[in-house]
Design a protein around this nucleic acid. Structure first.
Lengths: 360, 360
DNA sequence: TTGGATCTGTCAAACGTTTGGCTTATGCAA
DNA sequence: TTGCATAAGCCAAACGTTTGACAGATCCAA
């Protein structure tokens, strides 16, 4: 009869129940139900057992399996901040790739606090998760992670790389993102550019800046860079930086690259307050494709990062490691795409194009 | 010595290892480490064992514990669509409440597909989760859920109630939300209102409409209602509905209530295209407090729903059920709040106020 | 008939805990 | 000293699987 377990009389049917009903030993049931079992049970018995199990509604107990096999079919997704709108698509990517492989995902939030990360990791160790996908890597965390990796459980980084430790990662190609932004503005004829940078100590932003600047230089255009110190992405910051640009004595730039859509938004409103019209007088391009901003007038041209894809790719790596632990998978950089909307247009003074051609 | 388990030589220290090192039986270690164990171990040994365990870095194996105790300290959060920006805050609320209680959360996405929901539930059964929080309830799902509840595992509904089945839920008070919107507009002197409704077959929207209409009627004001059939919340839909309102032969309403911010946005742009200025000529109020829209000009007045709070409250219920399974907790309705920004202002023609006073 | 192979299936030992029952030691009253 | 309660700790049986080792049956060649 169905076993009655600890939980308030919940009824569970076990291997033994099925075995009794089918008139075989429970180990035979186990084998009959294991899709890739060694051939130890005849086709007839197998079919019979499967029928009985089906009829009784047998569900294997994955926690027992986990204990025996040492594999829980669980991976943890650790994020810094669930409030960050970039995160949900990543989680979705993770779930969509892992689910068909029979895995489920636990989630936890570090709130950008290393001690919380450590607590979470210990807890996950205790839960015997099979792997970890970490989107919350901070520079100081490599020590903690190292100990964790020492326990033999795979860690894959998503979105954020981490310098202090060799871990497979799946990040966005910010160099390319910056390049795309620059090439777009150049192609529209802009030759005097400005870059509204995020804080310097974030690796991805440095690369973003580098990609932009290199492409600008390669085209023989000029660029002024202003830099924020605040955490990336407030509109106020964008205003502030844009003010610096407009107040400068140098010739006003016609193409603006903001490291974040909300900065672009702030910059845009400030410029319009000063009587400049976008895209007539200047073009501006943001980064991130923040949701709902496509509703603005003018809708923001931006660089979109493949977030869901990042989650999928990270999961892919996890599965790869789990299936063939011999070698680490290669880290990947995912290509962002340019999303052209209405905030970018042809440069206002085409005459300049030819003048500055050969500066390099 | 540390046991070497199945997973590629990963080293785990077990109760037995600690027991050997401490010179006691492993059951004693188990008791010494259990904070609320019956008094079976002296203070001295307990302290000694704790020290040894600490030094060896012992971490209890929660899957073994789960097997023995029949409790996995895991709850599952099932959502319809991780892409929905409302969901992340709910997840955060869930994690924040559950984590201090020693629980972690699994997540899964139904993609609004009942058969996927069923698969997921079976899988969760197999994993012996302690409870489920479901934000993805659809009308047709009560049958599936009933079977599941029959297995004795608690299900709590968040955000969406479900008519066919008695389940504790934690939803937003849409009636109040509609009322708040109406009262705000009334207080500003508006007497001719319009309501841009979402589709009729969604319960929460009906209540939203009801709350609004009742408050309007109570104030003796008039209202025209136009209704969408599309799934809630596209700007195009808002445009379409607003066009109907403006094209009507009746006197133009001065106060608009849209069932969703994006609808409000669409309505707003259409009205401005027709030469009306907001909030000078008309006021409009949305619903949902969709992120980033506060950057618009004019920034949208809206109704904010306590999403994170919903997650926390649902978790609270789960913990309550788990701790005292005797009685179901009462369902809760969470109060939304009015967020006043710039899209609402005093009604343009104050004279009308007195004229229509006693229509009821 | 004997002696392997091969094919099916059973047996039982794990996996790492929790926990009821048991044993021994200790304290204390008579 | 005995008797007895109580405290402290050990023993071993679970929990539901997986899986190596073994056993019986069948078949076939020698």
């Amino acid at each position: 009869m169905g076993a009655r377990d600890a939980r308030k009389g919940r009824t569970t049917v076990t291997l033994e129940d099925v075995a009794r009903a089918a008139g075989v030993h429970y180990s035979t049931v186990s084998r009959a139900l294991d899709p890739n079992a060694v051939r130890r049970v005849s086709a007839d018995t197998r079919k019979h057992i499967q029928a009985v199990a089906e009829k009784m509604g047998y569900q294997p107990d994955m926690v027992a399996t986990g204990l025996k096999r040492g594999r829980t079919q669980t991976v943890a997704a650790i994020v810094a901040d669930l409030g960050n709108p970039s995160i949900a698509p990543v989680l979705r990517g993770i779930a969509s790739r892992l689910e068909p492989a029979g895995f489920m995902s636990l989630f936890a939030e570090t709130q950008d606090d290393s001690s919380r990360l450590e607590r979470i990791l210990n807890h996950l160790l205790s839960r015997r998760v099979d792997a970890i996908i970490l989107t919350a890597a901070r520079v100081g965390d490599s020590r903690i992670l190292r100990r964790f990796v020492g326990h033999g459980i795979p860690v894959v980084l998503a979105l954020q790389g981490l310098p202090g430790i060799r871990l497979p990662s799946c990040t966005n190609d910010d160099l390319l993102g910056g390049t795309l932004a620059a090439q777009h503005l150049i192609a529209l004829g802009h030759r005097r550019l400005a870059q509204l940078r995020g804080p310097a100590d974030v690796q991805s932003l440095s690369r973003r800046a580098e990609g932009f600047s290199k492409a600008i230089a390669a085209a023989g255009a000029t660029e002024v860079v202003v830099q924020s110190t605040a955490p990336l992405g407030t509109a106020d910051d964008g205003r502030r930086l844009m003010r610096v640009v407009l107040d400068s004595k140098r010739a006003r730039p016609t193409g603006i690259f903001a490291h974040h859509d909300l900065m672009a938004l702030g910059a845009l409103t400030l410029a319009e307050e000063r009587g400049l019209r976008c895209p007539r007088d200047f073009s501006i391009i943001g980064y991130h494709d923040v949701p709902n901003l496509e509703r603005l007038v003018p809708a923001l041209t931006t660089i979109r990062q493949p977030l869901e894809e990042a989650g999928r790719a990270a999961s892919e790596m996890v599965l790869h490691i789990l299936n063939s632990p011999s070698r680490q998978p290669r880290s990947r950089r995912l290509a962002p795409t340019l999303v052209v909307r209405q905030s970018t247009g042809p440069a206002p003074e085409p005459a300049l194009q030819t003048v500055r051609k050969s500066r390099r």
